[in-house]
């Protein structure tokens, strides 16, 4: 029987459990998310959701994968970065399972996991990764022995900007899909702050300007269209800067915002111009979910990484570039 790893992901609003085998087959990937009727996510409500729903989601993941608790060789969990209460609820479940089953525990960096599951799906070896979600906007590439953040947002994440805009115009969380749908009907472009600094971006000015345009009565479709084109244009530019600077030949798009078709279209254009391969991680593996944690746990385990329960405190501010990537050859 190959190595079987159960991965638990609970860094923010969703809780996921995924089962992945040692050769990289995703056997199951179940999740559930807090969906507030109005407003955003409260960390305490989200962590309660994870504690309440976690056990059932884990059982469901095992059933779908066709494995029993005794078949599990390894428990991986999202150790950070993320919301403290959510991380702690998830870590508690992971520790209990590891102790109960007597199997090793591995702590996984959430951002690194997004990249590794994307590499598994695409077959890419060394991409520039554009990771865009509600909490993150990063352009990451491997250099030396770490995943290094070449560019990121200097203020709010792109998904956060879209969610807040959605809230202003009366859409439910997450607002990305609603904004995308409106944008398809948009025709008139309204100029918005385009803020690129080196390989960094800033979205707070755009949010303020978009709020003002909305209050001035600009049509919602035109507003969404203008916001998407400007925000994604900025991402295209920093991606091009990262490709030109690192000379890498693969671009991987992942995170919740990767579902946006227009963003994929723009980055395909970027990849073509630079002769790079392009892959958008498929929606089930692009959002936050347990399979990415399980797969990265397997990679770390194969490199001899293990975590004692006593040392397994969570790391809410764990940066992508703080972890030695022992399972990849140094570049």
């Amino acid at each position: 029987m190959p190595l079987i790893c159960l991965g638990l992901e609970g860094t923010a609003h969703s809780f996921g459990a995924g089962v992945v085998s040692g050769e990289g087959r995703v056997l199951s990937n179940c999740w559930d998310m807090v969906s507030p009727q109005e407003g955003g996510i409260h960390p305490r409500e989200a962590s309660r959701h994870h504690s309440d729903m976690g056990p059932d989601i884990i059982k469901k993941a095992l059933t779908e994968a066709g494995v029993a608790f005794r078949d599990i060789h390894l428990i991986a969990f999202s150790r950070g970065p993320g919301l403290g209460p959510c991380l702690r609820a998830t870590a508690t479940m992971a520790r209990s399972l590891a102790l109960k089953l007597g199997v090793p525990l591995v702590g996984v960096n959430h951002c690194v996991a997004h990249i590794e599951i994307g590499c598994l799906e695409s077959g890419f070896r060394d991409p520039v990764t554009v990771y865009v979600s509600g909490g993150n906007t990063q352009v990451i590439a491997f250099a030396g022995n770490r995943f290094r953040t070449f560019g990121e947002t200097l203020d709010i994440a792109i998904g956060n900007m879209l969610d807040v805009l959605g809230r202003i115009v009366g859409m439910r969380f997450p607002a990305g899909p609603g904004i995308e749908k409106e944008a398809e009907k948009g025709e008139n472009y309204h100029s918005l702050p385009y803020s690129v600094k080196g390989m960094d971006v800033s979205y707070s000015g755009m949010l303020t300007a978009a709020r003002r345009l909305y209050s001035e009565g600009v049509a919602l479709s035109d507003l969404c269209y203008s916001v998407q084109e400007t925000a994604f244009g900025m991402l295209a530019e920093v991606t091009e800067r990262a490709i030109a600077h690192t000379k890498k030949t693969e671009i991987l798009l992942t995170g919740g915002v990767a579902r946006n078709k227009r963003l994929g279209e723009i980055l395909t254009g970027v990849a073509n111009r630079h002769g790079a391969a392009f892959h958008t991680v498929s929606p089930p593996l692009a959002g936050d979910q347990g399979a990415m944690i399980a797969w990265t746990g397997i990679l770390q385990h194969s490199a001899g990484d293990k975590l004692d329960v006593a040392d397994s405190h969570v790391r809410p501010k764990w940066r992508t570039d703080e972890q030695d990537i022992t399972w990849r050859a140094s570049s």
Binding site: A141, A143, G144, R146, R148, T149, F150, G151, L154, V196, K197, G198, M199, D200, H245, T246, D321
Partner: peptide, 28 residues
């Protein structure tokens, strides 16, 4: 991407970008 009438904030960003470039590209 150069700009005139630079404020302290803009100069700080410039230095931040150097710092960032060094830590990503010249980590050793």
């Amino acid at each position: 991407l150069a700009e005139w009438n630079a404020t302290l904030e803009m100069k700080g960003v410039d230095l931040h970008l150097i710092h960032r470039a060094l830590e990503t590209t010249h980590w050793d």
